[in-house]
Write a protein that binds this DNA or RNA. Structure first.
Lengths: 137, 137
DNA sequence: ATAAACCTTAGAGCACACACTAAGGTCAAG
DNA sequence: CTTGACCTTAGTGTGTGCTCTAAGGTTTAT
């Protein structure tokens, strides 16, 4: 399968596939005589693995680690895989907490403001940002 | 006040201040004869405004918009400021929802895995990523 | 007078995940 | 046999928010 068909089957761009090859995430099994990439069913499975891993929040470099483990399962333990997963989950939790604080502060700000069409001379959002330190405390 | 003192009062780097100047967020009121930046109390207030806005989740380009409004309050309405705030809050909410899905999926994955020291040949995390499409559905 | 600590600019580098461009080669249909 | 769709590489651009480097000028203390 040439790159164009492979890409459209997966719903990604050919650029993305070349990018993944460059970054050692997925290399087409073979090349045609004229140098075109020739993707196999195995490649399809691996790409689906990558896309699923992306879908649960792993970054490309984390996916690379997962693939290394997947290729050499016997040299790695369940513990290792679970650790990667839990570490990622904790990072996600930290980011959620930060964004939740943002959301809270933005709600407080928005609630203070009348939102009317009058000039913003005394807009509570602006004055709060000017004057108050304790928004996130 | 020269840039070094100004920076340490605010807990930012001098690089950051030069970066902000380059991106039109804060320009020192004046320069000394030898070309050094000379920051005023007004600059201090503005920088505090910027840092507070960052603290509630606004990006630098959004802060630039807020500053434009702040400088020309009469030409802008409360409505406009509130809209910026609510739009930002909605974006944050979308991101939180996405990360929450990630968190959920990662928890499901982690729970499936024993986490033991045995080789990962049959690791449930890996097999799930290989085989199942419905993780996030 | 000189060393240390500060300041200046312009520009490159980083992380992330691509998207896009230029300049060219290949392949199938009409 | 030529057109158009596809493919190749290498390299640049995007957005975010800095951080670092190089090469040099200024200020202050000793």
């Amino acid at each position: 399968m040439k790159i164009g068909e492979f890409a459209s089957q997966l719903g990604v761009s050919t650029d993305t596939l070349r990018y993944y090859e460059k970054h050692a995430l997925l290399t087409a099994t073979s090349r045609t005589q004229s140098g075109y990439r020739d993707y196999s069913q195995t490649d399809l499975k691996q790409m689906k693995f990558i896309l699923r891993a992306k879908n649960v929040g792993f970054s490309l470099s984390e996916i690379k680690e997962l693939l290394q483990i997947k290729f050499h399962k016997q040299q790695h333990s369940c513990h290792e895989v679970k650790n990667l997963t839990l570490q990622k989950r904790d990072l996600v939790a930290v980011r959620i907490a930060e964004l939740t604080r943002f959301h809270q502060s933005l709600s407080v700000l928005a609630d203070k403001c009348c939102g009317g069409e009058e000039p913003a001379d005394n807009c509570s959002i602006l004055t709060t940002l000017e004057d108050i330190d304790g928004l996130t405390q």
